[in-house]
Simulated scan of single mutants.
Amino acid sequence: MPDKHPRMPSPGTSRSTSATIQPNILRYLALVSDAYDVHLQPLLTDVGLDEAVMRSAALRVSYRQGSVVIRRAVELTGDAHLGLRVGAAQHLTAWGLPGFALMAADTLRDAIDTGVRFQNLSGAMVVWSARPEDAGYVLRAELPDPALDPSVAVFLAEEAFASVVALTRLSAGAEFAPLSVGFAFRPPHDTGPFTELFRCPVRFGAAENRLVFPMAWAARPMPGRDPVTYAAVMGLLEEQMTSRRDQQELLEVLEISIAQSLPDVPSFADQARRHATSERTLRRRLAECGTTYEALVDGVRRERVEQLLRRPGPTLRDVARQAGFSDVRALRRAVRRWHGVTPGRLRAGI
């Protein structure tokens, strides 16, 4: 097998479905779902997030775990605008240490730029960018993977902008309204909740997910601005970012390597050699990320199986072969472990 060296993703604002995130969105999703008498803890437990784990400040969850929970929550609540509800329910403390930096920033624009800079530490599930344009100060939210389940993609876009507006009103002024909001998904049946929340023109079927701040608001001083506190928190965030970047890059490169090699899987010894390190050191680094090589392989195979089952053409034998399983029986055992159903039932429900 040729030795493949995947391109390293940019660490600054990149986001990958292989990365791990803080479970802030899932915690608020569980709270909002409770109001519908939908209790997500059994579902969270099914994907490895029991109650004790969810209370851990050090917890990181994968995009796969998050996407599974979001998709099922939308189905169980029957709320097509669940992302709006979850975003609007949040507080700045939901963003952890970056939230405190935002509160202590000098202006709203400084707060936005800080949030974008440290998005990898805030639990964001979209890729944020911001810059001044003729229209105003423009905030963009890109999906981490264009092939995301449509219901998850809609949820993430809604949650992203709803949380930004809610947190801006809490921290800078309840009267805040964007100049405009654009969503890349098609118009929903009921657009009322959008205009009620954003209080501005909302466009659907746009080229990108985009929210425009008035420049006067971007320049507005933050009520809680504190240069000393801001500098202290920024120092802590820089330390966390350095550690986080190293871990994220390691996971992304390993998962890309595994995905590119399927149906074969590079041995752990091969991966250690590619990283010019010992097996012991690589195993320790993965433990610091809260995972193992076996778990990464399992996750990549799971993603490949789900992608293949979405297509009408591949037979179960094709799926098993392309995902690196020895036979269809091994594929069936894996799918039942992941989803609790057969591959046929899973394909029908995707």
Rank of each mutant, 00 (worst) to 15 (best):
V228E: 12
P187A: 13
T292Y: 08
S257Y: 02
F213M: 09
S257D: 05
R285S: 07
A232G: 00
Y293T: 08
P214V: 01
A232Q: 13
D190V: 13
R245F: 02
R274I: 13
L170N: 08
T277P: 06
E288M: 05
R285D: 11
R199Q: 11
A259D: 12
F268Q: 05
P221M: 01
A295H: 07
D246Y: 12
L262A: 08
R225G: 01
C200A: 06
R274K: 02
V300W: 03
A172M: 01
T191I: 12
E238W: 12
S261E: 13
T281Q: 12
A232D: 15
V233D: 00
E288Y: 09
D264K: 09
P266I: 07
S171D: 13
R284E: 07
A231T: 01
R210F: 03
A295D: 02
L296P: 04
L296I: 02
E196P: 05
A219D: 15
H189E: 14
E288V: 13
E249M: 11
H275R: 12
A172P: 03
P201I: 06
A177K: 05
S180M: 02
R244D: 08
G182H: 13
T292R: 07
C200S: 03
R302E: 14
Q240Y: 14
Q240S: 11
P201Q: 06
R210V: 13
S257F: 04
